[in-house]
Simulated assay, not measured.
Amino acid sequence: MSLSLKYLFISLCIFLLGFTGVFTPLRNFAHKVSNPVSYGLHQIADEVRKTFEFFISLKKIRHENLRLREENLSLFSKISNTKELEDENKVLREQLALGSFVSRDKLIEARVIGLPFDNENSEVLIDKGKKDGVLTGQEVIYKGFLVGSVVDAFEERAVVVFITSPKLSVAVSDQSVDGRTKGLVTGSYGTSLIMDRILQDEEINVGDYIVTSGGDGIFDPGLLVGKVVEVFDDKSEPLKKAKLEVSMDFGRLDRLFVVVK
């Protein structure tokens, strides 16, 4: 018998024996061995798939968070800019309402960007300079108050000295009495103001409000300077003095107005 006929005969026998159930125990054993392996491989594949999907979702969440963060920052910036513009317009309207002698085109709004330069806390740096029209000697005001004067102007910055500095002198008058008692105000080491050169026969009282008189040719008349808190009246002296209290804390100002002549 040839080799091919032998293989055919053996195959036929195996096929016929399969119908008799001879191979059933062997088949069951193979299933028992292979099923746990198949199940384990399936579980591993499923875990790998879930892990892969998890990292993909993390990446998507990260991108979404970054997008939302950028949108929030953009929105916050727009809100801040809008609020800042509203504040600036409000302050400008208040300034124009209080100062009838100055028009809008003569006001340069400036931000305080630097701490005091001197030991007396009476100088600050502002963000406007010569290119904006700010020049040395111009008066600086805020809501009807005389704040000080520009003492040094650069191309894009300027230095403002407060009226509380002894470097600055202002011609003033007492608006609370008839005849408008006149005098000269100078700073008292950055803490208060002293009004001197007051004639003995002129009236001045505690509680009076002192304003600029315009007599020095530098500062416009009618700007509030301070309030009298003490009067020094020595009858043996030809002149008397008064101590003034500044009603505004200049050190807390974040913006000022420079008046263009």
Rank of each mutant, 00 (worst) to 15 (best):
S11F: 13
I56Q: 11
N65C: 05
V228E: 06
L146C: 07
N121K: 14
V246I: 01
V228L: 06
L107V: 09
V160G: 00
F54P: 00
G40T: 08
T136A: 08
I210F: 01
Q175N: 05
S169D: 10
G183H: 05
H63V: 00
V160A: 03
N81G: 00
G214W: 03
G190A: 08
F23T: 06
V228K: 08
T82V: 10
G18V: 02
I108K: 12
V160C: 01
D152R: 10
Q138P: 00
K227G: 01
I163Q: 03
L26M: 14
N89V: 15
T136C: 01
D132V: 05
F117G: 11
E120S: 04
L98W: 02
V37P: 13
E139G: 03
V258N: 06
G226S: 03
I56H: 09
L73V: 03
F29V: 09
L41I: 15
L41Y: 10
S77C: 02
V161I: 14
A45M: 11
G40I: 03
V124I: 15
E120L: 08
N205T: 10
V48D: 03
R49A: 12
L85F: 10
F219T: 08
V147T: 04
L73N: 04
L26K: 09
P116K: 00
D105Q: 13
L8G: 07
T20H: 02
I79H: 11
S34A: 14
E84K: 12
L96Y: 10
